[in-house]
């Protein structure tokens, strides 16, 4: 299978997933208590009659269920994710406004957790059984059990309110009007805490996986050969062990990226980060179901896209994958 064929296959699969989520959304609207028109209006019971009639007409809510489904799916096909009557804006434009901030946050958290996690895991494996290993595995265990939203709040108290090292909330300093590099640095300083806390759980996960993977590869024949021919231990673990051990970790990390998008809801809520997670929280508070389902669809789309991306990177990084698939 060449890359183009592979890509086409993955894209088709991704589209099927997104189609299924659109169908799921359709039924979720009907599962909400009350009339679907009121659910779409997002103001349970308080929407004016005129709007409800309009909505019933637009979504054919007096038509058979299958027709309704078709009307709904047609919306998704034309990139129409609905309209937020609360915010008087289309859901898509609301999401697109917030998307860059979320991509920045989840991207940073992904890189931090993968980098830090594999590094910690590799170190623990090289010092297996010694105190460095105990410290790292204990840390991983602790990170693994810590509630994300709580550690976000606590780091807010310690690092920004008490120590004043980094800004407390937000995306950039309001009213500072920085441009160019100064603005980038400003945003980066706001990014530190959200990205670290969002990545914490995954750092633990990747550290544990990397440690296990390193120990497994370390027993392989080619590693014994490398040692037997007298290569320095450090070189063996860097060149031979780590390189092979990191592959399964990266695969799983790619699959896990979706959970990162979900976790962003908590981080963005705590840090008032203006991304789609925060949008989801606001929609939740206002019971604005159109936005809620729109964000749900969009975050799934992000996951699908991300999975395809990691697959491509992975195939480029390790040619053996192509031979297998």
């Amino acid at each position: 299978m060449n890359l183009a064929q592979f890509l086409a296959g993955r894209l088709a699969k991704g589209i099927v997933v997104l189609f299924a989520i659109a169908v799921l959304n359709f039924f979720l609207i009907r599962a909400a208590p009350g009339d679907p028109a009121q659910v779409l209006a997002g103001e349970a019971g308080a929407a004016d009659e005129q709007l409800l009639i309009q909505l019933r007409e637009r979504f054919g809510l007096d038509q058979p269920l299958l027709t309704q489904l078709w009307v709904y799916l047609k919306g998704y096909l034309t990139f129409d994710l609905g309209f937020s009557y609360r915010q008087q804006q289309s859901v898509l434009s609301l999401i697109l406004d917030r998307l860059p901030a979320t991509l920045l946050l989840t991207g940073a958290a992904f890189i931090v957790s993968l980098g830090l996690g594999t590094l910690m895991g590799a170190l623990a494996a090289r010092r297996a059984g010694r105190w460095q290993d105990s410290v790292i595995t204990t840390l991983a265990l602790v990170f693994y059990a810590t509630p994300l939203f709580w550690v976000a709040l606590m780091s807010q108290i310690v690092f920004s309110l008490k120590l004043g090292l980094v800004p407390n909330v937000g995306y950039e300093s309001i009213g500072a009007n920085y441009t160019g590099l100064a603005r980038a640095l400003d945003i980066a300083s706001h990014l530190v805490l959200p990205a670290l806390t969002l990545g914490l759980f995954f750092t633990a996960l990747y550290a544990r996986m990397m440690r296990a993977s390193m120990l497994e590869v370390a027993g392989a024949d080619f590693v014994k050969t490398a040692r037997a021919k007298g290569l320095a231990p450090g070189l063996v673990s860097r060149r031979h062990v780590a390189r092979n051990a990191i592959l399964p970790v990266v695969t799983l990390a790619g699959l896990q990226a979706g959970q990162l998008v979900g976790g962003a809801v908590l981080t963005e809520t705590v840090f008032a980060w203006p991304g789609i997670g925060r949008l989801m929280f606001d929609a939740l508070v206002q019971r604005d179901y159109s936005v809620l389902l729109g964000v749900f669809f969009m975050s799934s789309a992000m996951v699908v896209g991300f999975n395809i991306l990691t697959d491509i990177v992975y195939r480029l990084a390790d040619p053996r994958i192509e031979a297998v698939s």
Partner: peptide, 17 residues
């Protein structure tokens, strides 16, 4: 497994009250 699980949980609980 593809659907972000936390987002799905939020949507389910919000919709079902």
């Amino acid at each position: 497994q593809t659907i972000p699980s936390f987002a799905l949980a939020i949507v389910l609980v919000a919709i079902l009250q």
